[in-house]
Amino acid sequence: MLSFKLLRSAILFLSLSVSLSSCFSRYIISAKEVRRHYADKKVKPKEIFIKNDTLSLSLASMGPDTLPMLLLIHGAPGSLWGYMNLMDDEDLQKHFHIVSVDRVGYGKSRLKKRRYVTSIETQANALLPVLSLNKSDQKVIILGRSYGAPIAARLTSLAPDKVKELIMVSPVIDPETERFFWFSKWGRMSFVQLFLPAAFNAATAEKYSHAAELRKMLPVWEQLSVPTTVIQGGNDWIADPTNIDFAKKHIKSKRAQYIFLYNAGHMITFSHASMIKEMLLKSRLFQDKITALEPKGEGMERE
């Protein structure tokens, strides 16, 4: 009887692990998939490592460093390759030095003796050396998605003199609306974690610290002085749509704007890539009209 219970438990845990992996497989791209993706492309990213005694950062770079830098920060789980659609865009390549980075705890990016890094402050500080790769005469545009959005904001607040614009897409920034799912608690079990991708385990560690970390961010929002854009989808199942209301309440800068896409989900950098591309290329973050609207049937509100 005992053996049967153990076997049943093992099967349950394995099935759960497979289910958890499948839930977020679209956010994790394997090295094999990356090689296959770029096998026939003329323009391929250059992989860069920033290393010192305590830090190792993995980055992918597109274009000469004399062009203005566009820094892309992923969510949780995720990786630098989650922005391949923007990195591969020929028009963006002509105008930007595109840099996508693995946050510490993801991919090959590590802090010495730290398996996971749940601190937003530490994550942002770890990214500061990336800004030194900007060799242009213009400031950096920082785009952060999902859990990467508050990290992008903290990074901006640490080096406001080096940042031209901050863009937060599908941001998870309100500590009172942190969403937990049926599988969240199972992902914390050490036995289950043995069968999960490292990125998923890092994301789970971040999730259970995130609300507390976001409360530490409350003073930061009022200090933001660079032009800031918040883009939120109305059908986002990961970031509560009311995150945009939190942003409106706490970001005091008059140089902030908010875009609400009623029918968009979480992956706006894919579903509305043309809109984001036009914003970047034409520097229309603070103009009255963006012509590349969302797919037919979707509405957009701008403030």
Rank of each mutant, 00 (worst) to 15 (best):
K5L: 15
L12S: 09
L16Q: 06
L20P: 00
C23G: 07
F24Q: 08
K32F: 15
R36T: 11
H37D: 11
K41L: 14
V43N: 15
K44S: 07
I50L: 00
L55R: 02
L57H: 00
L59N: 01
P64R: 14
L70T: 02
L70G: 10
L71S: 04
M84G: 00
M84S: 03
N85L: 04
L86M: 13
K94A: 13
H95L: 14
V104F: 01
K108C: 00
R110T: 02
K113Q: 15
Y116F: 12
E121Q: 13
N125Y: 03
L131Y: 10
L131D: 02
S136E: 06
I141G: 02
I141S: 06
I142K: 01
L143G: 03
R154L: 10
L158H: 08
D161H: 12
D161T: 14
S170G: 11
E178M: 13
S184K: 13
M189H: 10
Y208D: 06
L214H: 03
M217L: 10
P219W: 09
T228N: 08
T229N: 04
G233F: 01
D236C: 09
A239S: 13
N243H: 12
F246I: 08
A247F: 02
K248D: 13
A256C: 13
Q257R: 10
L261E: 12
L261K: 06
N263Q: 15
G265S: 07
H266Y: 05
F270E: 12
H272E: 15
E278L: 06
M279E: 01
K282P: 05
S283K: 11
R284I: 12
A292Y: 07
E294K: 11
